[in-house]
Amino acid sequence: MLEVRELEAWYGQAQALWGVDLSVADGEVVCIVGPNGAGKSTLVQSIAGLHRSTRGTIAVDGVDVARVPAHRVGDHGVALVPEGRRVFARMTVHDNLVLGAYRRAVRPGLSAGLDRVHALFPRLGERSSQLAGSLSGGEQQMLAIGRALLAQPRLLLMDEPSLGLAPVVVDEVFDAIRAINADGVSVLLVEQDVERALEVSARGYVLAEGRIVASGSSAELTGSALVRRSVLGL
């Protein structure tokens, strides 16, 4: 599904990623954990096409999308749930979801997609005509996920979905990740809640100071001293 090779990324002169290799197989959930500022978000944004100061290859189903403009990356079956949710606050919940299906190729699936999202997050259906900005943090996260689902992705990039949410809500979000994956969507999950991230995923990578410092099955990584040390930045 996704094959990232030798990825480097910069902000101006500051290098944020140094030769990152990672892969996500079809139907797999893979997580990336690591301390704040390790470059996790940069990695996800580079894959989504939002950060274009990069070197290396990002192959989606064998096609290199590293030079594809951001608004064309979706054509390759990638959708993003951005860090901090970033729903369109001045638009209604419904409009946010519809916008997810903006690309012509996925517009025919709009109503089926809406049904699916409403089934996944019934609360979004109830608040359909409300402004997204007036939703609670958890509802906004659900909306951000729903919006991405309407783009009919085969690979869903999720950037810190539990950020700033109450534990009960986080449970809901992770249940949703499982449900989405059960439908055959691959997920690349960046998450600061290491324990939960490893629970939901099959494999994981540990990113620290812009490099992959460890990788393995989630079982191997769970409780590993190395993970703990990298995440705490010790």
């Binding site: 096409g49 951001a70 608004h71 064309r72 979706g74 959708a79 970033r86 369109f88 903006y102 783009a151």
Partner: peptide, 13 residues
Amino acid sequence: EDRTVASAFGIDH
């Protein structure tokens, strides 16, 4: 509202 996220959903500004 948000050019960056909009472009991620296929919007060609």
